[in-house]
Write a protein that binds this DNA or RNA. Structure first.
Lengths: 237, 237
DNA sequence: GTCAATAAGATTGTTGACAATCCTACACTC
DNA sequence: GAGTGTAGGATTGTCAACAATCTTATTGAC
């Protein structure tokens, strides 16, 4: 039987899977989450090898689930797997950092433009304004800027949640995680945080006024400034 | 010992790995390539389940390498794996198709803008002009438009190769593969191919003149038109 | 006839063992 | 002393068997 064009999109074999997230995460996912945390926290540094045996012993499982966990981390770019050589924490060159930030700039622009243009944008405002208020407080207090990066992450989480484009938010999540340590670097001076705050405030205004163009510009500038600052510090070193 | 900022980017454990692609691809990679071809060709349709046992028997290996192959395909979005339920060919909803095209529009715009602004852009022109010439011939001949989509793919391959941003081109490759069947749909009428050709010619001009802005616009329009046409056909069905 | 409970079969998840390859240290040559 | 070749250990790759879970078919009640 020749199928008509009408069936280009076929029924899903697992229709309910779209909504229902698995209640108990699988073993590989649990292991991946643990290792991911260690990479994000810096406990595992760039270039460090990750031995299957060691992780398996630590979690008291066999190497099978560990291999799958490493594959999951590779999907997120946190780990690089080379045939016959195993896994290591991904180590980015300066150029690669620049490239990822460039992609983030453009995709963050798309995300924030769509949010500013969406009808539901006003419902989002209070939560965002509260977080930006926190940013402003940190900047006003001066000091080490403790909590600034964390609040920025929370803001990005809020915006990702608000996006109807789920594929977009998942790519953004992944890229943000890969450049986490460099984002920290790019926000390590009071001057940079002031600059960053300005762009966040511009975004709030753009969302309030429904100005997609302005939202996109603020987002792109925000990420590109962060990129430039991070790379300057990297190259000075 | 407290490490200085200078070591944020550490030496790679496998420095030569960046250049040297493995000569003989691993077993999982070979299996993944075969299955990938079947999905691209339509032999495996959306929603179709892929049983580990069946693939393993066919390639005369155990289920281990097959599982890894399916993980690789999942990374590219070609396959969806659900816990305890196995793998199936990814089936996209209309909304998801729209989302992916939207991301492709923006990232293609970034890619083509950077190419048009690069110093090496003129060396690229002859190859691109030749392919666009092929597109023009197909359009002129009318008929079924055989080879149009394939030539567009070749063009995208050329542009991806020319991009210095390797992460960008790998994301674009993946997204293009995921929407391959919908791209075909979006270029299935002579009218649409004429429209598409116009944007390709605009891109050639933009690259020749080094006009990044125009290159970006042409790319975004090209992909968005393709998206609109594909979705219209999907919804009519 | 429709629906729910149940049992059998099918399929994925995990394990431990073995094979193949890679890395390191050491001896040897020049 | 520098470089090369070679063993040994370490590590990843693959396999086959078993356990856990899911799907399907059958039976029974209403």
């Amino acid at each position: 039987m020749v199928r008509a064009m009408a069936t280009v999109i076929e029924a899903r074999a697992f229709p309910e899977a779209r909504a229902a997230a698995p209640l108990t995460r699988s073993l590989p996912e649990q292991i991946a989450a643990q290792v991911s945390r260690r990479i994000a926290s810096g406990a595992y540094g760039p270039g460090q090898r990750i031995l299957e045996q060691a992780i398996a012993a630590e979690f008291a499982v066999s190497r099978g689930p560990v291999r799958e966990a490493l594959r999951l981390l590779e999907k997120d770019g946190l780990v690089t797997i080379l045939p016959r050589r195993g896994a290591q924490v991904t180590s980015l060159s300066v150029d690669e950092v620049r490239e990822i930030f460039e992609i983030r700039a453009v995709l963050n622009g798309l995300r924030d433009r769509r949010i500013a243009e969406s009808p539901a944008r006003l419902a989002l405002l209070p939560a965002i304004e509260a977080e930006v208020g926190t940013l402003a407080r940190v900047v006003r207090e001066g000091g080490e800027g403790a909590g600034y990066v964390e609040t920025v992450f929370e803001l990005n989480r809020l915006l990702n949640e608000a996006t109807t484009n789920k594929r977009l938010s998942s790519i953004l999540d992944s890229l943000a995680l890969q450049t986490l340590r460099y984002s920290r670097l790019g926000l390590s001076t009071p001057e940079r945080r002031r600059q960053s705050l300005k762009h966040w405030q511009q975004l709030v205004r753009a969302i309030r006024e429904g100005d997609g163009e302005a939202a996109q510009e603020a987002a792109e500038k925000r990420v590109r400034d962060s990129r430039d600052a991070a790379i300057k510090l990297l190259q000075k070193a």
